[in-house]
Design a protein around this nucleic acid. Structure first.
Length: 570
RNA sequence: GCGCCCUUAGCUCAGUGGAUAGAGCGUCCGGCUACGAACCGGGAGGUCGCAGGUUCGAAUCCUGCAGGGCGCACCA
């Protein structure tokens, strides 16, 4: 619809200039917007005010000239000049009926836009260290990344979801030592704990599982062999656990990328990817040696200071591996790479962008910073402490509130806003809970359809699509839909493609939950004001069933983008 | 000290340089003998943190200040 309005305004400007009524050196942007106040119509343009000075006219005079040129379009019902020179446009019922038909005919493709044109984009998210359970922040980033991927797919991109596994480095050694120590304890041995070792209860659980499976045979084994075995075994257990928990919320990754592969020697004992990456940066003149270390000159790309890649002791920094990882991503042919990081990593953004630019892909990396989650229970802050092990994990939360509520709540706020998550509210099946509000609208529509078809709600064999196939007719007289609530519902449905586009462009899935609530609200109002099934008015019933079904499909689509189920009964 | 994010109704938050700044919750008042009341309608509630600037026009852009969060490693 936006395109229609924009071309309408541009056309009016062009013809005004061509006919000599207005003198302008160049045609301005149409400056089309959605008025905040519905009484100002469906669309408005401020182009007359922006252009008045250049045209040497007063804004209202110019506006009137343009308005006259737009009034005859079949999608436009009314054109008004308002305030200092706004041109307000009201969309015709004819155009709104076309939207209803689109929603019905395009079903689960309604609202798709082609921003991506098949370009390949990778979304990397969660990437929790494989040494312990995920916290609720990881849950938020999981919901965020997956929904972003869904909406990008809907917007015409080819999307890959990836999880970067930090399975190299000292934390893995610490992890192995910690598990081994608990194992020895379980075998009744005296052990001494390092100050920085992991002490969570899950460490003991992993140790116990190894004990149960293998007995005490590792107690007297060579310490190095024991640690190495425990590292791999515990790592695999944690990795499977991560996959399991994420899958429980409907998040499945295409690729689990191991950091170790970046350090492994290349074919025939050649350079590792990390080494290769440094050499290619060196060839491009971005590397120098100082104080026995190898440095990346990141400041020319906007970083605060240069960064060490290879330390004086010969080992590589995490950053070096991360550059190699991003080189690997671009070598795999992605046109665009999106990383979702926790707020505690935001200081890292500049250097990573610098590295990507130095690799020859400036501007192709987009880092989204996800703010943290504060847990509440019925209004009280849930205090958590890693030290005491007093902690609500992502898995705990998912078990308690379920995947629909978890995903929905995680996506209700903009990314750069920290999130207050109230466990009590998420579980509540009441009008205070927005998940239920939206799902209820969907279930209610399905109920109406069952009613109209004479199907009992208890009859589980009849699903909505089957009922609709024989109940809702393409010939429905949509011209009968003229009540305020009916038109408002149609207008809200017409917004869906714009919402998808905004959510995709701005990488902002929270726009979807907002829209879902708006659409549900428009439907509930329609339901209250307009009786759908009325045996005395078969034509009106047919038209309203058509509108209800279009809404059902749009609600299902937006919930699918959020990753939340659309139940037919609740 | 430096950098990034945040500050909008009692609470939680929307708001693309546009018109009288919105929503949900809470609060007060109403609506089921018709399709699901897990719903709907109405009222009260604001110094958009503060101060300058930019312009036809600023919650939005720029500068400074205050408050809050998070970072500033040859850690990962």
């Amino acid at each position: 619809m936006r395109e229609v309005i924009e071309s309408l305004v541009s056309e009016a400007l062009r013809s005004a200039v061509e006919s000599g009524l207005v003198t302008l050196a160049e045609l301005p942007e149409p400056a089309v917007e959605r008025p905040r106040d519905p009484s100002h119509g469906d669309w408005a343009t401020s182009v007359a005010m922006r252009t008045a000075k250049a045209a040497g006219m007063n804004p209202r005079e110019l506006a009137q000239l343009l308005a006259d040129a737009m009034a005859d379009h079949p999608d436009i019902d009314a054109v008004e000049i308002a305030g200092p020179g706004f041109i307000n446009l009201r969309v015709s019922a004819h155009a709104l009926q076309r939207v209803l038909r689109q929603a019905r005919n395009e079903t689960d493709r309604f609202g798709r836009v082609d921003l991506g044109a098949g370009r390949r984009v990778q979304v990397e998210f969660v990437s929790a260290n494989p040494v312990g359970p995920m916290h609720v922040g990881h849950g938020r980033w999981a919901a965020l990344g997956d929904s972003m991927a869904r909406v990008l797919e809907y917007a015409g991109y080819e999307v890959q979801r990836e999880f970067y596994v930090n399975d190299a480095g000292v934390q893995m050694d610490t992890f192995a030592k910690s598990v081994a120590a608990r194992y020895l304890e379980l075998c009744g041995r005296e052990v001494e704990f390092g100050a920085d070792w992991y002490r969570g209860a899950y460490i003991t659980e992993i140790a116990r599982e190894i004990l149960d499976a293998e007995g005490e045979k590792w107690a007297d084994a060579d310490p190095a062999a024991r640690e190495s075995y425990f590292k791999e075994t515990a790592y695999m257990q944690v990795l499977e656990h991560l996959k399991h928990v994420l899958h429980g919320m409907g998040v499945d990754f295409d690729v689990w990328f191991s950091e170790r592969t970046l350090h492994a020697p290349g074919p025939n004992g050649g350079l590792s990817e990390v080494e290769e990456t440094i050499e290619s940066l060196r060839a491009a003149g971005h590397i120098y040696e100082k104080d026995d270390a190898t440095w990346f000159a990141s400041t020319p790309f906007g970083d605060d200071k240069d960064r060490v890649l290879k330390k004086a002791d010969g080992s590589y920094t995490y950053f070096a591996a991360d550059i190699a990882y991003h080189k690997d991503k671009f070598d795999r042919g992605f046109d665009r790479v999106i990383d979702i990081w926790g707020a505690d990593h935001h200081g890292y953004v500049k250097r990573m962008e610098a590295a990507v630019a130095a690799l020859g892909h400036p501007g192709k990396l987009h880092v989204v910073i996800g703010q943290l989650v504060n847990l509440f229970r019925d209004g009280e802050v849930v205090r958590m402490s890693k030290r005491t092990g007093e902690m609500v994990t992502f898995e705990d939360l998912l078990d308690e509130v379920g995947p629909d509520a978890a995903r929905y709540f995680f996506l209700r706020r903009s990314t750069d806003q920290s999130l207050d998550f109230d466990i009590g509210l998420a579980k509540e099946q009441s009008n205070e809970n927005p998940v239920f509000y939206v799902q209820y609208a969907h279930a209610r529509i399905c109920s109406i359809l069952r009613k109209a078809a004479g199907v009992e709600t208890s009859d589980e064999s009849a699903d909505a699509s089957a009922i609709v196939a024989r109940l809702v007719s393409e010939d429905a007289p949509l011209g009968l839909l003229s009540a305020d609530a009916e038109l408002a519902l149609m207008r809200k449905l017409a917004e869906f493609p714009e919402v998808v586009e905004n959510a995709a462009v701005q990488l902002a899935p929270y726009k979807l939950t907002r829209y879902a609530e708006d659409l549900a609200s428009s439907f509930h109002q329609f339901y209250t004001q307009c009786r759908v099934v009325d045996p005395d008015a078969p034509d009106l019933t047919a038209a309203r069933l058509y509108a209800a079904d279009a809404t059902r499909l749009a609600l299902a689509s937006v919930l699918a983008l959020v990753g939340v189920s659309a139940p037919e009964r609740m």
